[in-house]
Write a protein that binds this DNA or RNA. Structure first.
Length: 353
DNA sequence: AACACCTCCAACCGCAGTAAT
DNA sequence: GATTACTGCGGTTGGAGGTGT
């Protein structure tokens, strides 16, 4: 039903707008207002299609457009709105005065999405990558860290998992004192601990211990689900091991989508400063807890462990799971794949493969 | 200086929804 | 109800400018 594209019409200009064209468009709209975009270019003396004129006006020439960098507050707002609305850029833009849908979409794709991925957060679901969470549990269990288990996992793990595993092994091999389970599961969420930071920082700044019972409880739960997985990997279910963890999340997720919840990612807010500065970045502050509130008992319980370990379907960019080695990897996907190889090199080195 | 590669964003494209006929 | 005209939306692209080698 859609109209034919502008390119079908002969003699119409494409590409970047000149200052002269901009001025013609502005002058015309100031005199006659906008609308009737199809007729506008003819009346305004522009060799452009109406669509192009509308886009130029709404995305660039409109007087109420706010130019310049996004503030942290705007960034936080975008993340919150995206969590509720998804890729409804126009809906998001309507709540950010002066920003266009195109601008927000670009900013999401070039900045925020990448930032979330680096933090180990799925930019589509806004939840921590549960597969990474599980790997931390697997690696933390000394009795399960043996060759058969890891070889079995090799075919299931996606590159992000392997990347994390490689980081952990690198840490372990460089510093025997550094206790991986403590670093991963005590007193602050794993994705904030490890993923946003370079490997060497994660290794050299292990957090202090914490006796918070909630964290200890999670340790037990993670251990329990790991053991269940170990005994029956394909039929693993969260149902039996996480009955209490997501109680609050069910309530929160049942909220109307019209209301925008305050950032609260679950049951375990960060309590301590870890001898360092507390996170004040509002962006990071949204992801300080352990379990995302949009993960419910229902949807966790229905996940099989196998599906968690394979490439997540929620991931917007399919993960490259090939075993090709990229020594000079230029893209993030390539680096992930490269890290997968490094993991198995490390496993080989310590005699597990 | 020259080249390769990367990032960013303005602009394009195709499709869907809706109003008008 | 079918068709046409128009507008809006979201995904994608291409090129300018920046950075690294």
């Amino acid at each position: 039903m859609g109209k034919s594209p502008c390119s079908d019409k002969n003699g119409l200009k494409k590409g970047p707008w000149t200052a002269e064209e901009d001025q013609k468009l502005i002058d015309y709209i100031q005199k006659h207002g906008h609308g009737r975009w199809r007729l506008l270019p003819k009346h305004a003396g522009l060799k452009r299609c109406g669509k192009s004129c509308r886009l130029r006006w709404t995305n660039y020439l409109r007087p109420d457009i706010k130019r310049g960098k996004f503030s942290l507050e705007e960034e936080e707002t975008i993340i919150q709105l995206h969590r509720v609305l998804g890729n409804k850029w126009s809906a998001i833009a309507s709540r950010l005065p002066g920003r266009t849908d195109n601008e927000i979409k670009n900013y999401w794709n070039t900045h925020i999405k990448r930032k979330l991925l680096r933090m180990g957060i799925d930019p589509v679901t806004h939840s921590p990558r549960l597969d990474l969470l599980e790997l931390s549990s697997i690696l933390s269990s000394s009795q399960l860290l043996n060759a058969p288990n890891l070889i079995g996992l090799g075919s299931l793990l996606n590159p992000d998992l392997l990347n994390l595993a490689n980081t952990l092994f690198s840490c372990q091999s460089r510093n025997q004192e550094f206790n991986i389970p403590q670093n991963l599961e005590q007193n602050r969420p794993f994705q904030q601990n490890l993923l946003p930071y370079p490997v060497n920082q994660a290794c050299t700044n292990p957090p202090a211990g914490d006796s918070n019972p909630e964290y200890l409880n999670q340790n037990q739960l993670l251990q329990a689900n790991l053991e269940q997985f170990s005994s029956n990997p394909t039929n693993f279910s969260w149902q039996n091991v996480l009955p209490n963890l997501c109680q609050d999340n069910v309530e929160q997720f049942s909220m109307s989508k019209e209301s925008i919840p305050t950032p609260n990612y679950g049951c375990c807010q960060q309590e301590t400063d870890h001898n360092q500065s507390r996170i004040h970045d509002p962006f990071l502050s949204q992801y300080q807890s352990f379990v995302p509130n949009n993960i419910t008992c229902g949807n966790i319980a229905n996940m099989s462990f196998g599906s968690l370990l394979s490439t997540p379907s929620s991931s917007s960019t399919p993960l490259n799971s090939s075993c090709t080695t990229y020594v000079n990897a230029s893209t993030e996907d390539e680096r992930d794949s490269y890290c997968s190889n490094m993991l198995f090199d490390n496993l080989d080195a310590i005699g597990l493969v």
